[in-house]
Amino acid sequence: MRVGVITFPGTLDDVDAARAVRHADGEAVALWHADHDLKNVDAVIVPGGFSYGDYLRAGAIARFAPVMREVVEAAGKGMPVLGICNGFQVLCEAHLLPGALTRNDRLHFVCRDQWLRVENNETAWTSRYDRNAEILVPLKSGEGGYQADESTLAELEGEGRVVFRYVGGNPNGSRNEIAGITSANGRIVGLMPHPEHAIDALTGPTDDGLGIFLSLLDAVVSA
């Protein structure tokens, strides 16, 4: 399993994302923002950080990076894509996922371990979880408030496309306590919290996040 991990100028969490891939017995393949090909990877992770300094809007400039043109094309053919934190913002800006992420409602940068409920375990990235399992992973973001119009929210809820929901209070003003969503085909997932920081009890609060990367292994092997 070859998993591309994109680095934009300002990306922070590419190293941990690559480490998480290796923990799941995958091969992490470094992709640079200026690359015009995806190096034959089976899936792509758009990691967290502050791509292009979050100038204009978080993810707004990364969306136009050469490598994202390839990601959008590959996603259209069903390649699994995961966006974490800033990566989620990039996927929304690229219209691979609906909605947008906005400034946290109380303006504070939130940095803490956060409980999430896995409400959809039929995506390419969540099959290893039990439905409604609760997992504890770090959340660290200043613009994590998920926003979408009413019809989009109704569609996401109606189709079971809310994958992760915050448990124990809404940390950032996200509509419907949404922490992560998926595309209609269940191949693209974006979430604000950081499963790649919770793959090993030595370095994270839990190893609850590892299931994301093991799920991908199953999805790629069965494809």
Partner: peptide, 13 residues
């Protein structure tokens, strides 16, 4: 400008 229905925490602050 943020849409009227979108919370604007910066403006509120």
């Amino acid at each position: 400008m943020p849409k009227p229905e979108i919370l604007d925490p910066q403006g509120q602050a």
